[in-house]
Design a protein around this nucleic acid. Structure first.
Lengths: 164, 164
DNA sequence: TATATACGTCAACATGGCTGTCCCATCCCC
DNA sequence: GGGGATGGGACAGCCATGTTGACGTATATA
């Protein structure tokens, strides 16, 4: 080969592995989210509704501004989704206790049931993937994803657990 | 906070670990895709444009129907994006050689440059995550994601590699 | 009391999905 | 050679979900 060797840049050498990660993440995420659509469509709800339900389920008495930070959308966008979910009786609100300006969000009984039903699809897919990949892989899966998430966001995710 | 995940427990199918995966996948994917928006916005292009550029870059002489399968959208949706990219000179098309009904898609020089520039953001983020997580974790990351992707889609992803 | 914050809302707009329908060129098979 | 299947394109219109900017009100806090 008369072709000169490319520079031994670490970035160049890793490009294929980077692309592999990008592609698997894209298809993995797409497939997971598509798996909920089937449960949403008959109710006339969209993914935005599911995300709100999910996070409120995860952290009851979440405030509107906390939910806004989690979803990283504008309050106008959230407003549409939220008011629809309240109107349909999936979410109920209370005035904040320490701070009466806040609105605490919580799932109703039917909201809880809906979230649980939608979660089934997620659980089945994710559990199958965990099982197929094996326990050691799951830890690596988490660690790489954590590396993709900025510090500030990561503490929000952690808050879903410790939050209450 | 920045504390790395503890290893997955033997009972790794517990609901909490499923939710952890769902959440990390959501935030990881969101953060990665947001990282390209900054490069796209000044050009007046959207994520849909980037996805098309990405896959065509990955597999030159891709046909329209192959791209449709990769993106899993309708041809009307793709048509808008594609015609804009062609009009702007990022993509060029040739008539298929074996099958003259096909249109083979390929990046132009400026299309290649644009894709490379957009890829830089992806590479930086993903490389940082790989480095932080360690090589062992990367393999686990791939394995779990592969488990989330149906067999048929997985062979398409593999085709991005062997395809040309 | 003054200012900042939490929440809500109106109007307008962009992106990127979707459906349904119809079209043409080309391929392939009987 | 004719007919159906396939690859690609296009029109019209709709929907979900994001955006900005401006404005209003209740409440908290310095």
């Amino acid at each position: 080969m008369a072709v000169p060797s490319p520079p031994a840049s670490p970035l160049f050498l890793r490009e294929d592995e980077i692309r592999r990660g990008v592609e698997l993440l894209y298809f993995g995420y797409s497939n997971l989210t598509h798996s909920i659509d089937a449960g949403l469509a008959p109710l006339g709800l969209g993914r935005a509704h599911h995300r709100a339900l999910y996070f409120i389920s995860r952290q009851p008495d979440l405030t509107v501004s906390e939910l806004l930070k989690l979803l990283a959308i504008t309050k106008q966008s959230l407003g549409r989704v939220l008011s629809e979910l309240i109107e349909r009786g999936y979410i109920e609100t209370r005035t904040g206790t320490q701070d009466r300006r806040q609105k605490l969000l919580r799932l109703t009984t039917s909201g809880t049931a809906l979230e649980a039903e939608l979660f089934r699809a997620l659980r089945e897919r994710m559990a199958a993937a965990y099982t197929q990949a094996g326990q050691g892989s799951v830890t690596g899966f988490w660690r790489v994803l954590e590396g993709l998430i900025p510090e500030a966001d990561l503490s929000m995710v952690a808050g879903l657990r410790s939050g209450n």
